[in-house]
Nucleic acid binder design. Sequence first.
RNA 1: UCCUCCUUAGCUCAGUUGGUUAGAGCAUCUGACUGUUAAUCAGAGGGUCGUUGGUUCAAGUCCAACAGGGGGAGCCA
Length: 479
Amino acid sequence: MFNTRVKVKDLLATSPEGQDVIVMGWVRTFRNNQFVALNDGSTNNNLQVVMELGAYDDAFLKRITTGASLKVKGKLVASLGKGQAVEVKAESVEILGDCNPEKYPLQLKNRPSLEYLREIAHLRFRTNTFGAVFRVRHMLAFAIHKFFHEKGFLYLHTPIVTASDAEGAGEMFRVTTLPFDNPPRKEDGNIDFREDFFGRATNLTVSGQLEGELGAMAFSEVYTFGPTFRAENSNTARHLAEFWMIEPEMAFYDLEDNMNLAEEFIRTIIRFAMDHSREDLDFLAQRLVEEEKQRPQAERSEMGLIEKLEFVVNNRFERISYTEAIEILLHSPAYKKKKFQYDVSWGIDMQSEHERYLVEKHFKRPVIVTGYPKHIKAFYMRQNEDGKTVAAMDILAPGIGEIVGGSQREERLDKLEARMKEMHIPTEEMWWYLDTRRFGTVPHAGFGLGFERMVQFVTGMTNIRDVIAFPRAPKSAEF
RNA sequence: UCCUCCUUAGCUCAGUUGGUUAGAGCAUCUGACUGUUAAUCAGAGGGUCGUUGGUUCAAGUCCAACAGGGGGAGCCA
């Protein structure tokens, strides 16, 4: 019976002919004991419900407070007021849930800060900003599945709990059922994980890539899209301990195929969000304009949010080699004026300041950098003929830095094993991974994309904790 | 983890060279008004100044430690 209701978004797009409607939602504001701005999360726009003066007693009217939930039956009519095209003339109003205004922490007229809203993350979805952010997040997630599905990729669910093999992607969260106070120990004093639930040490996954490669060796093209965990003590606006990552892995792809896919992927999902979440993106763009007004002129961005997204959708990404990137940095005015804090030379792992210079100052667009020195990259990346570099590619985006990291994988067993030994990665434990190179190996490639960074880029939100529903970060796991 | 800044009413913020009873706007409450659009108008209540310790005749104000948060860096997605 609740499903006889019509969503606010649909009502606002309906031509008013006095038809009977049922609408439910939460009160945003209540003016003049007559006008309820009702919101149900389907859009940031509120539906105006008009309650006839004198038709309700005072005690009832006092219960219609910001945050209270209502069921309204009435007629959809053309609005007499100027702020909206349609409104509902109420015939009955039922309060589904009261909301004590003296205790309700979300009084929207107070313009609460993002930091405050983070402390009430269970309620922040009811704000326009977070309403828009999470609808856009949803639209991007949907676009991602749509993109890969239409290309014939198989959605592979890689495990959340993994054995502690050397994947080398960062600090891990341990998964165990052993007692903390007195765990079983081996003779040498170390904890005996043979006694643990899985009979070995296990952790939360830091990447689904290796398992993704196994899938690609049968299905040709797969992708994973799931939660990923890093126990790094990172306190920044672009790191989380729990985040969502998209990792496609493709057989019969070389590095160029990989770049082409990554670029098409990014462009396609942004286009999709612009086509299907335009209202929310316009709202977020306006929010950014207001935010920028608080900043000094020099720190303001050159492009608005919509312009920036249009630009990315309509322009090719710049593609340069690592060696060219170093050359550009060495010949840059910033380098000559000693503006960089960290020195530049071939072989360095580029710092944030270097990446930002390339993306934001030199090219002013997303940049794909390829051919990194092998000593700063992972063991599984395909070694180039020069003996110094690997077939890696990073996509750097304005404002957030590295958004994609990928490579063509080393498919040659001898080269891969030699590299693993050099990097002290135990080949015995990785027998299952090496089997793909033993039995019908093929050239293949893939990349990883941090979903929250993508959402940041599209929504313009500067703190990653504001684009995930319940952020997990050092010293922070409320809700 | 490092550097730096911040923490005053429910929220956003003022608070002078340390000085008597800590302020504003909004929110909330009471009343007025009633086609409003962040409604408007009048009035009221609301504070252990993050915590602990120190300096001083006197601390919101100075010092230290700790906690939480912002910005930047490292690690990375």
